[in-house]
Each structure stands twice: as C-alpha cells, then as structure tokens.
C-alpha cells in the first residue's frame, strides 16, 4: 500500500488507482502480419522486473485518466510519475 502522485489530482491512496501493468508495450502496427511468436510476446510475455519498473496506472476512482509511473517493485517506492505520451525519464533504466 502506498501513495501515488496523480499528475492531475495530486497525491492519493493507491486503492483509488488500478494498475495497468508494464508500460511502453507498443501495440502492433500491422496486426495481420504478426507471427504467433510475436503475438505471444505482445499479449503474454512480461518483464516482471524485481527492481525499477515502468508501468501504467489509471486513477479509476478519481479523474479516470491514465499515466505512467516508475516504481521500484522490490520496495514499492515510486521514483517518478509522467503523463501518457511523454518520454520516460532517462535516469532510470
């Protein structure tokens, strides 16, 4: 349990948000061209990182907007929050 600083509403309890999982998974531009392996990679395979992870959150019980978060999954510390469409911060890898 932790606080998330929504870029639109400010700091709120995590229970107001829903997790959208790993961020920056690009939707295939040509879905009809994809092989089964590529579909599996897109749909199912996840980095599931222990450490610094880039992820999406939705403020579902607030402004209902999506945004990105950089969080350390080993201790739940949030390192950065940035809006959809913005470049991820470069100081984390």
């Amino acid at each position: 349990m932790f606080l998330i600083n929504c870029p639109f509403c400010g700091e709120r309890d995590q229970s107001e948000f829903s997790s959208g999982g790993e961020a920056h998974i690009v939707r295939p531009k040509q879905p009809t061209e994809l092989s089964d392996d590529e579909w599996a990679e897109y749909l199912f395979m996840r980095k599931n990182i222990k450490g610094i992870q880039f992820e999406r959150w939705n403020h579902v019980h607030g402004c209902r907007k999506w945004f990105n978060v950089v969080r350390d999954t080993s201790n739940d510390k949030i390192l950065s929050v940035y809006k959809m469409g913005e470049k991820p911060p470069v100081n984390y890898k």
Binding site: S19, E55, T73, N75, D76
Partner: peptide, 13 residues
C-alpha cells in the same frame, strides 16, 4: 494486490 510487487507485504485494503 493488483500490481507487480516483490515486497511480501500486501495492502491493508
């Protein structure tokens, strides 16, 4: 919990 975490804690809610 709904999010990826390795903390072995979990949320109170």
């Amino acid at each position: 919990d709904s999010y990826v975490s390795y903390t072995q804690r979990g949320s109170h809610n």
